[in-house]
């Protein structure tokens, strides 16, 4: 199913804020192979919340996750993430391009803290296509 170009400009909030707990951060860092002495928040950790926002977008537009391949991801950070942060994200569809066999969806997710201050922005390209 093609993704409609009229989605451009629509926004999709992640359904719930993400509590940056020591436990979550530890599990994420361990999955990247950091040893237990590492006590920062890995810079790619905000993908956990950006993924929730993306899932909200996919659910709303009835796109199956397994037909999505991540084409590009970039983060810019206003400040480091910290344990204790309570983060919220909203994804905005910026571009939809059809390549015939696939649609390439450009998105931006702003991630803000409990005070509403911008913490980081994630831009992602999602490639939708393949299979039946």
């Amino acid at each position: 199913m093609p993704v409609a170009a009229d989605l451009v400009g629509r926004s999709y909030p992640a359904p719930a804020p993400l509590e940056v707990t020591a436990e979550r951060v530890r599990a994420f860092a361990a999955a990247l192979g950091h040893d237990s002495s590492y006590d920062d928040v890995p810079p790619t950790f905000p993908i956990v919340l950006a993924f929730d926002a993306m899932q909200a977008f996919l659910d709303a537009e009835q796109v199956d996750l397994h037909r999505i391949v991540h084409g590009e991801q970039r983060f810019t950070y206003e400040r480091p993430l910290r344990v204790g942060d309570r983060l919220s994200a909203t994804l905005v569809v910026r571009t939809v391009r059809s390549l015939g066999v696939a649609d390439v969806i450009g998105t931006a997710s702003e991630i803000v803290d409990a005070d509403g201050a911008l913490v980081c922005t994630g831009t992602a390209t999602l490639v939708h296509g393949g299979g039946e």
Partner: peptide
């Protein structure tokens, strides 16, 4: 990309990351 982030942090002693990204 997370492993690249880890490499970057190991190279720089955990310097603050301002931008990180790539095309897959």
């Amino acid at each position: 990309l997370g492993l690249v982030g880890r490499a970057v942090q190991e190279w720089t002693g955990g310097a603050e990351v301002v931008e990180l990204g790539a095309k897959f």
